[in-house]
Design a protein around this nucleic acid. Structure first.
Length: 581
DNA sequence: GCGGATCAC
DNA sequence: TATGGTGATCCGC
C-alpha cells in the first residue's frame, strides 16, 4: 500500500476498523468469508458514507466503544485488586469445568440440516437460466444471494444498491413466496420421516434426533444423513447441507463446514470435540453476534479456546459475560434433545412496516391504521388475543423506540389495537418516522385445546387431567383471565393470579458484607465460603439446578438461544429525542 | 411491567 | 435515491 496516496478519498472522519466492519452487516463473518473482505468492507463503507443509516451506525459503534472502555476499566480494577487470588479463581473455574465435563452426554445423534441458499435455489428451479449467474432475491434489502453473487461480497441483509456496487451485473429477482412455502413443507415432511419429533428452525433449516432411526434401521449416522439428503434432492431438486454431532449447538456449527451440498460428522468423543472447539472463532457460536464478538475480543477472546485462557477474568466479570454459558461453549456442550415447537409457547404476535419518511400526523396515523388491520387479520387467522400492546417506531435517523401499555382486557380487533396504539403514539409526535409497528404480548390462545371436539372447550378449566399434557399454561392462564369481552369462555374468572413459572437465580441474597473468605459462585452469583468442602458442596447443588434450567432453556433449540448478559446497559437514551427533518 | 438492546433467520 | 420483518430473550430499572 502506498501510504502517501491513500486509495480512499480523504475523509475527515477517522473511520475505526470496527465501524467499517459493522457497516458490512451482520451476516458477514458468520460463515465463510471472501478472500478480500477488507476491500469489500471498504467499498461498502464508502458507498454508505454520509447516509442517515451510516450516521446511526457510527453512533452505535461509538457507544459500543465506550462500553468496552468501561469494561476494560472494570476488569483492571477487579484484576489488580490485591485481594483477589487469580490462581484460586482459576482453580474454582476448573472445578466447574470438571463437573460440566462429567455431565457430557454423547449418547444422542443430533443433526442440523440447512438448505443451500434456499430462496435462490428455488428461483433457479423456476427459471433455469439463472443457474450459474450472480443474482439475489429481495427488493430494497436482499434475502439471499446466489453463490456466484457471494463471491463479490454480496450477502443477505445487504441493501440492494450496495450489492449492485459490489457486483454491477447482479441480477435482482423478487420473491415468489408461495413457492418457498410449498418447498419448505416438502423438505420438512421428508425430514420428519427420520425423526417425527424434529424441530424446524425457520423455513430452510431444522434439527433432528436420528438416534432411534439409526438403531431401528441398523444404519450409521453418515449413511442416514446421506440418505436424507439424497431423498430431499430427488424429491425436490434442492441440495441440503447437514451437521452430525452429539448436541444441537455443535450440529448447527457443523452444518456449515461442508456447505453447500455436504455434510460433516464430528467425532463423538470428548477430546475430539474440545479440539474442534479450540480454534473455533467465537462468532461461529449460535447466540454470539457482532456485539458480543467485539466485547469478547476486547478482553482477548477470539476463539472458544481463548475462553479457558481468560477464565479468571470471565469469572470476575460473570455479570457482564455469563461465565457458565461460555464454559459450556468452550467444552462444546449443548442441548441433546430435540422437540417440536409447541403452540402455547408463543409469546408475541406483531406487525411492522417501513415507508418513506413521514412527518405528517394524519399520514402517520394512516400507517398505524394499516398496521392494525394487518395485525388483526394475523391474530384472527392464528387465533390469538393478548393484553399488552407495544408500539414501535423508527425515526428517519434510524433510531428505534418502543412504548407499551398493558390493559386488563383482551385485545385483537383492529379498533382496539388502534385505540391503544394511538394513545401511545400521540404524545410522541411530532416526529419524522420511517417505520411503525405494533406487537401484542401476554397472549391467550383462542383455539380450543382439541379442535375436533368443540364442546370440550367448555370443560377446560376443570379438565386438567385429560389427554392434553401441555395444558399447564392454558390452565393457569384461565385462572387469571381478565373479564372476557367475548361470549364463549369462562364460567368463572375465579381467583388471584398464580405466580408465573419463571425461576430466577435468586439475585437478592443478602450476605454479611464483611465475610472475607467468600467468593461469588459463578453459577448462581451467591457469595459462598471459599473453603473447598463448602464450595464444592454448593457447586454440586448449584450445577444440578443449573442443568435443569439449561435443559429447559434449550428445550427448543430454534427459538431459545441462551444469549444475554454480555452487555450491561450504559447510557439511557432521552425518551424523547425528537428530530425534525 | 417498560424500554433498550442483541440475536437468529 | 437508497439499508427488512417476525419473534425471542435478557438486563436494569
Amino acid at each position: 500500500m502506498n501510504n502517501r496516496h491513500p486509495q480512499v478519498p480523504l475523509n475527515a472522519s477517522q473511520e475505526t476498523a470496527s465501524l467499517v466492519k459493522r457497516l458490512a452487516g451482520p451476516s458477514t463473518g458468520k460463515a465463510g468469508l471472501a478472500k478480500d473482505q477488507e476491500d469489500i468492507n471498504r467499498i461498502i463503507a464508502d458507498v454508505s458514507k454520509g447516509s442517515k443509516f451510516y450516521e446511526n451506525e457510527k453512533k452505535k459503534d461509538k457507544e459500543l466503544t465506550k462500553k468496552i472502555e468501561h469494561i476494560l476499566h472494570l476488569r483492571d480494577e477487579l484484576t489488580k485488586n490485591s485481594g483477589v487470588d487469580l490462581e484460586k479463581i482459576e482453580a474454582n473455574v476448573d472445578q466447574i469445568l470438571h463437573k460440566l465435563e462429567c455431565q457430557r452426554d454423547l449418547s444422542q445423534t443430533i443433526v442440523h440440516f440447512d438448505l443451500d441458499s434456499f430462496f435462490a435455489s428455488v428461483e433457479v428451479l423456476n427459471d433455469p437460466t439463472l443457474a450459474g449467474k450472480p443474482f439475489a432475491v429481495g427488493h430494497t434489502v436482499l434475502s439471499t444471494a446466489s453463490y456466484e453473487a457471494r463471491k463479490y461480497g454480496v450477502r443477505s441483509g445487504m441493501a440492494t444498491f450496495i450489492a449492485k456496487k459490489l457486483c454491477p451485473e447482479l441480477i435482482m429477482v423478487s420473491h415468489g413466496m408461495s413457492d418457498y412455502s410449498e418447498m419448505s413443507h416438502k423438505v420438512m415432511a421428508i425430514c420428519n420421516r427420520y425423526d417425527p419429533q424434529m424441530c424446524p428452525a425457520g423455513c430452510d433449516e431444522g434439527y433432528l434426533n436420528i438416534t432411534a432411526y439409526c438403531a431401528e434401521h441398523d444404519m450409521n449416522a453418515d449413511a442416514c444423513v446421506e440418505h436424507l439428503r439424497s431423498a430431499v434432492f430427488t424429491e425436490t431438486k434442492l441440495t441440503v447441507s447437514a451437521g452430525i454431532a452429539p448436541n444441537t449447538m455443535l450440529a448447527k456449527i457443523c452444518s456449515d463446514k461442508n456447505k453447500p451440498n455436504g455434510q460433516f460428522h464430528l467425532p463423538f468423543q470428548s477430546e475430539a470435540i474440545k479440539s474442534f472447539m479450540h480454534d473455533l472463532p467465537i462468532r461461529r457460536v449460535p447466540g454470539i453476534g457482532r456485539v458480543s464478538e467485539r466485547l469478547l475480543e476486547s478482553i482477548g477472546i477470539k476463539t472458544c479456546g481463548d475462553i479457558y485462557t481468560y477464565r479468571a477474568t470471565l469469572s470476575l466479570m460473570d455479570k457482564q459475560f455469563g461465565l457458565l454459558h461460555l464454559l459450556r461453549t468452550h467444552l462444546g456442550l449443548g442441548s441433546t434433545s430435540v422437540q417440536p415447537p409447541q403452540r402455547e409457547e408463543r409469546k408475541s404476535i406483531g406487525a411492522e412496516r417501513t415507508f418513506p419518511p413521514l412527518g405528517d400526523k394524519q399520514k402517520i396515523i394512516e400507517k398505524l391504521q394499516e398496521i392494525c388491520a394487518e395485525l388483526e387479520s394475523d391474530m384472527e387467522e392464528t387465533q390469538w388475543t393478548g393484553r399488552t400492546i407495544t408500539l414501535k417506531y423508527k425515526l428517519s435517523t434510524f433510531e428505534v423506540f418502543t412504548r407499551a401499555k398493558s390493559s386488563n382486557r383482551w385485545i385483537s380487533r383492529k379498533e382496539d389495537l388502534f385505540a391503544v396504539g394511538h394513545e401511545l403514539l400521540l404524545p410522541e409526535l411530532p416526529l419524522t418516522l420511517r417505520l411503525i409497528g405494533l406487537r401484542v404480548t401476554k397472549l391467550k390462545d383462542l383455539r380450543g385445546p382439541d379442535p375436533s371436539i368443540g364442546i370440550k372447550r367448555f370443560f377446560d378449566a376443570a379438565d386438567s387431567s385429560s389427554s392434553n399434557k401441555k395444558q399447564k399454561v392454558s390452565a393457569s392462564e384461565t385462572a387469571q383471565d381478565p373479564p372476557e369481552p367475548e361470549i364463549s369462555e369462562n364460567t368463572k374468572p375465579t381467583s388471584k393470579p398464580t405466580s408465573f413459572r419463571k425461576e430466577k437465580p435468586e439475585s437478592k441474597s443478602r450476605q454479611s458484607p464483611l465475610e472475607r473468605e467468600t467468593h461469588a459462585c459463578p453459577v448462581c452469583l451467591k457469595q459462598v465460603p471459599t473453603e473447598n468442602d463448602a464450595f464444592n458442596a454448593h457447586l454440586d447443588s448449584c450445577l444440578s439446578r443449573g442443568a435443569i434450567r439449561q435443559a429447559q432453556a434449550e428445550a427448543s433449540p430454534s427459538s431459545k438461544q441462551a444469549q444475554g448478559n454480555l452487555l450491561e446497559r450504559w447510557t439511557k437514551m432521552a425518551p424523547n429525542s425528537k428530530k425534525k427533518t
